[in-house]
């Protein structure tokens, strides 16, 4: 999962873009996605579940979902004219049986 630079927008989770100065703030940008697991993965995972350890299918599923949420946030930032998003935060919550929401938010800025 490489989320360091999507469509030329630099992401960081500190208040500044290291090595650059922020010249303009555009405010909050967010992205979310709600994903449900699918049956095939669930069956495979239920076998893996007997012996415990990492459920790779789920790790991948959530990684893809998080990438999609981040891409949505970046698109919002680009629409505002930003070239970086700082103070990025991630959160995950199980909203329904078998579905998880992945939420990502940050501050869109222009850094030079």
């Amino acid at each position: 999962m490489n989320l360091s630079n999507i469509q030329g927008v630099v992401l960081t989770n500190v208040e500044q873009v290291p090595g650059k100065t922020i010249v303009e703030h555009y405010g909050l940008v967010t992205g979310n996605t709600v994903r449900a697991k699918h049956v095939g993965r669930d069956i495979a995972a239920s076998f893996k579940n007997l012996v415990g350890g990492e459920l790779k299918g789920y790790t991948e599923l959530l990684g893809d979902a998080r990438e999609q949420a981040t891409t949505r946030m970046v698109e919002q930032a680009l629409a505002l004219g930003a070239n970086a998003v700082v103070n990025v935060r991630f959160s995950t919550s199980a909203v329904a049986q078998g579905a998880a929401e992945l939420y990502v938010y940050g501050t869109a800025v222009r850094a030079e």
Binding site: M1, L3, G53
Partner: peptide, 10 residues
């Protein structure tokens, strides 16, 4: 730049 990693375990 941002780096993200995750793992799902049971």
């Amino acid at each position: 730049h941002l780096v993200v990693a995750s793992v799902v375990v049971s």
